[in-house]
Design a protein around this nucleic acid. Sequence first.
RNA 1: GACCCCCUAGCUCAGCUGGUUAGAGCAUCUCACUUUUAAUGAGAGGGUCGAGGGUUCGAGUCCCUCGGGGGUCACCA
Length: 499
Amino acid sequence: MQRSEQERLRIESLAQMRQLGIDPYPAAEFIATHSAVGLADRFEEGMKVTLAGRLMTRRIMGKASFASLQDSSGAFQLYVSRDEICEGEDKSLYNMVFKKLLDRGDFIGVEGETFRTKTGEPSVRVSKLTVLSKAIRPLPSPKTDDDGVVHDAFTDPELRYRMRYVDLVVNPDVRKTFEARSRVIQAMRDNFNAKGWLEVDTPVLQPIPGGAAAQPFITHHNALDSQLYLRIANELYLKRLIVGGFEGVYEFSRNFRNEGMDRTHNPEFTVLELYVAYKDYLWMMVEMENLLASACKAVHGKTEAELAGEMINFKPPYARVTMRDAIREHTNVDIDGLDEDELRTACKGLGMEIDDSMGKGKLIDELFGEHCERHYIQPTFIMDYPVEMSPLCKSHRDKPGYTERFELFIAGTEIANAYSELNDPIDQRERFEAQLALMQRGDDEAMFIDQDFLRALEYGMPPTSGVGIGIDRLVMMLTGQTSIQEVLLFPQMRPEVFA
RNA sequence: GACCCCCUAGCUCAGCUGGUUAGAGCAUCUCACUUUUAAUGAGAGGGUCGAGGGUUCGAGUCCCUCGGGGGUCACCA
């Protein structure tokens, strides 16, 4: 393979280290007494410490040098003096190893005593230096000037996503985003566990891709000689567990949909699904408000987050708007009482592209998606969806033709979808059959009938409220990112071709 | 899937209506330097300009095909 000049030099340094009796990839444990930030937080002069991490910038000034050591928490300054790491006549550890054979990016461990330099910078005066792992490829070398401006940043999205390991090393904000993602998920999990709800795992490989309307990935099991699908949702499995007697179950579900990719869609994505027995969608709204407020606090320490120049306020309560009112407000169309033909005429009047395969539910969905959705910047519950677009949702307790469903919109994007779950097995069977009719009419997103799920409902499911929250999108909202690729460690890319 | 834009050194980028040997900063290498922090000073090396074809006396630059990426739209969360 073709090596760059810098790579060849580093490989040569490896050999030279071995000649000096230094193992560039030692096996032994290295114990760091402190992390970089931990040491900075509890800094006193005269502490005996050890640190481990990557050697980053070096400023060599003859017989002494400054360097920064970067670990998972951040960076700390090292002071390396020739005569302090080489006590005897042999100065090769400094002159050869430190100055020549080590490079930016190599892992080292150091032992030494803390002090402040004359400019006041907390530093470690290195007395012992151990090579922990040599890097043979050079890292990109961004620099930050006195005004905080970053020069030569590693910014090419293709390289950053394909080599996330490099991105994480040189772009501290990237690491912060993924730490925030972990905190969001942890805050949610803590919240659910405190209430006694059970975290469960349900099948990713499903014989029927149910619980949502989407194109699945199809695979094949050899031993069973049967077609299987990667799940597009886990909803129907969690409801089976409610039938089984658990009162609250949740799962952070990796779902797979064989559809387009853009800045809010990745073929695999994460949804938190939560189902709680004896609750309804009104209860769930309050639950969501509190949940998102605590998730936001977990990231920002307060209930506000900035996104694309807009402050998003996660403090409860959130606005509640019915689907009918939302459409009426933004299009002057009152969907109440319109039949399918009248609705189609109204959509055409608004210049929308529609076709005959669209049923009433789909038409309303289009109306909302095209004309309303983008207006909801602050967290807003859109509630009471028409029954045609919600085949798994309970009919509204006092609005015929509507369901007890809400979606939560933030920054014009759907973040969560929740129901008072349909638990009437006869009604559910009819809804599935209506989906079948839509499918025959040409709607390729209509749901399949899951006979086992219907059988489960026939054994009796308590009244239940369930919700799905798009975790990737929520993390985007909470970290100020506008592309899903920035909140996925390894976003889907075309396979790389190696020459 | 459609349209638009991008791909030049390890990184970030210049490179005009085509014109000698393709440039800069950082990184790298050599030398100097014991309190620097975008360290500094002096010097040096490093490129099949995404790939392949074409037009031309001459292509990084114009045209075509392909590959990769980004953006917009459509489907979807």
